[in-house]
């Protein structure tokens, strides 16, 4: 239907976005691949000798890489688990008739708008601090020894902080999806004598499937690159206990100045993220057609 004229105009209008994004994708990627083959440390000036795949061998056999990989998976998986289960429960609750629903929604969504550095520092100091934190106070009140959250269970503490930021997001999206469920279907199921539980399993849950997939997709994109929360709370420690891939590569590049090694790590991270992305893009693509 579009004429030749509009088609070429359309191409012209898309060009800036497409070219910029293409450059943003290809330039850093090509440069990172190039750096990953060099013996390149910011502290040692002079020529950067070509190393081939040595940087990759070092990075992949470094025990820190394996730790970081596991931590990344635990962090993404842990936060997804808490936010999906909690989000479904809370959304079901908010879908009922409640007093002051508007205010409840406003209070519940708020953590999503808190910038990561603020969220992490508030939790670190005012809640998880073993001396002055509120948790320590409640532990002492209950006659227990206060827990030094970020020193003894650093990754779990970070999962709590990140989940606090994303639970509202999951809830809001799942609630939006719930509200589009046809009332008549629910009534029909009720009249047919379906119990609340089977109504949930056979009607509500399938209806929410798409929203749940979308929540998993969006959260995974952001959770794979959690950074600020780790930087301001534990610096990845103790040891590598709370280091994820993003933080590991950051510290190798900007704290140890090992550009070659960190670039190899960056490429590994890109490959891993792409494996995840292939699945996710397919799912979103299907949802778009629906």
């Amino acid at each position: 239907m579009a004429t030749f004229h509009t088609r070429s105009a359309a191409r012209l209008m898309m060009a800036p976005s497409v070219l910029l994004l293409f450059a943003w994708m290809i330039v850093p990627l090509a440069t990172t691949i190039y750096f990953s083959t060099l013996n390149y440390n910011l502290l040692s000036p002079g020529d950067h000798a070509f190393l081939g795949i040595t940087n990759y061998q070092y990075f992949l056999t470094d025990p820190a890489f394996f730790d970081a990989l596991i931590n990344t998976l635990l962090l993404v998986g842990g936060v997804l688990f808490i936010t999906i289960i909690g989000g479904i429960g809370f959304a079901l609750l908010l879908d009922q008739q409640i007093y002051g629903q508007g205010i409840v929604r406003i209070l519940a969504i708020a953590p999503f708008f808190v910038m990561p550095t603020v969220a992490a520092l508030v939790w670190k100091n005012m809640f998880m601090n073993p001396v002055n934190g509120l948790f320590a106070y409640f532990f002492r009140l209950a006659g227990m020894e206060p827990l030094d959250w970020l020193a003894s269970i650093p990754l779990f503490s970070i999962i709590i902080i990140v989940a606090w930021q994303w639970l509202p997001f999951a809830t809001l999206i799942l609630l939006t999806s719930l509200q589009s469920l046809d009332e008549e279907q629910k009534e029909a199921a009720e009249m047919d004598g379906a119990s609340a539980f089977s109504r949930f399993i056979y009607l509500t849950l399938p209806h929410m499937a798409r929203a749940i997939t979308v929540v998993i997709l969006i959260e995974t994109i952001f959770l794979l690159s959690v950074f600020a929360e780790i930087l301001v709370t534990t610096n990845g420690g103790p040891g590598t206990d709370s280091t994820n891939l993003t933080y590991l590569i950051y510290s190798q590049a900007l704290l140890q100045f090992d550009i070659g090694g960190a670039s190899a790590g960056g490429i590994v991270a890109v490959i891993l993220a792409n494996i995840v992305a292939i699945f996710l893009v397919r799912i979103v693509g299907k949802n778009l057609e629906a």
Partner: peptide
Amino acid sequence: KDILMWMLSTKMMPPVGALIPIYL
């Protein structure tokens, strides 16, 4: 649709993959 999907996929590239060249 392919272009839209491709744009979305650039969002999935982890930022650390671009950190080093951009920083330098």
